[in-house]
Design a protein around this nucleic acid. Structure first.
Lengths: 115, 115
DNA sequence: CAAATATACATAATTTTCTTATGCATAATA
DNA sequence: TATTATGCATAAGAAAATTATGTATATTTG
């Protein structure tokens, strides 16, 4: 979804967090929201997004409702109960991940270097 | 390298940062260092590490020196000049990535919810 | 008014990255 | 002496993304 590979693996967490926050969203809306929040830095591609949404739905984490708005189809997704619980886990994992990455890149001074 | 897929895509950055910091390291040493820094949370598998090191070397970002210590082989890696430059880029990308993820998961309060 | 852009979904082929499993070899520990 | 630790390596497969298409309607722009 981006030239920097760092975002690999974070798409599901992003989707679930946005749905937790906004109640229900449709695919295109998610891409635009992410673009907005990241100031254009993260552009989720359709090839990544739609398969991800389908998988989350297949896994029972999302429910879908199809609606026609302005003569165009929209598939609104929202978290299931199971999805809400899982979102909590994913966000905790993300927090741990960020902490770990920060430990790795901004390490506390190395005792080995003291003499 | 971990059950949480969030780490996908971050291995190269981790390797390069550790090498920037420590001058030179060998593969096994990297796995142990990461385990230590992340308090056991992140265990880099050999199946991920060694191919990654080989690719970084092939891309001209790392140099390798083979040594025998205690009758066991060690392959010490260090950043090339090009690798040092690239490390700066990767670390900037990581910083941006973390900021973006934090924006996504700890958003400023949603005006829509105010009434 | 025609062409381009935006909105909205979908999937198939390929690539990248990682997991899992395996293999070889030496040293240290239980 | 068997297991664990140290140290490297690769192959098969899975997971997640990129890239490239495809369909369709609405809106904007030249």
């Amino acid at each position: 979804m981006k030239n920097s590979q760092l975002y690999k693996g974070s798409l599901n967490t992003i989707i679930m967090k946005l749905l937790e926050e906004n109640g229900r969203m449709y695919g295109y809306e998610i891409t635009q929201k992410v673009k907005l929040i990241t100031k254009g830095e993260l552009n989720i591609t359709e090839g990544a997004l739609y398969p991800a949404l389908h998988k989350l739905e297949a896994d029972g984490l999302l429910d879908v409702e199809v609606e026609k708005v302005d003569n165009r189809m929209r598939k609104y997704y929202k978290l299931t109960e199971s999805g809400e619980k899982e979102t909590v886990n994913r966000l905790n994992e993300l927090e741990e991940f960020i902490k770990n990455m920060q430990s790795l890149v901004s390490p506390s001074p190395n005792p080995d270097l003291q003499f």
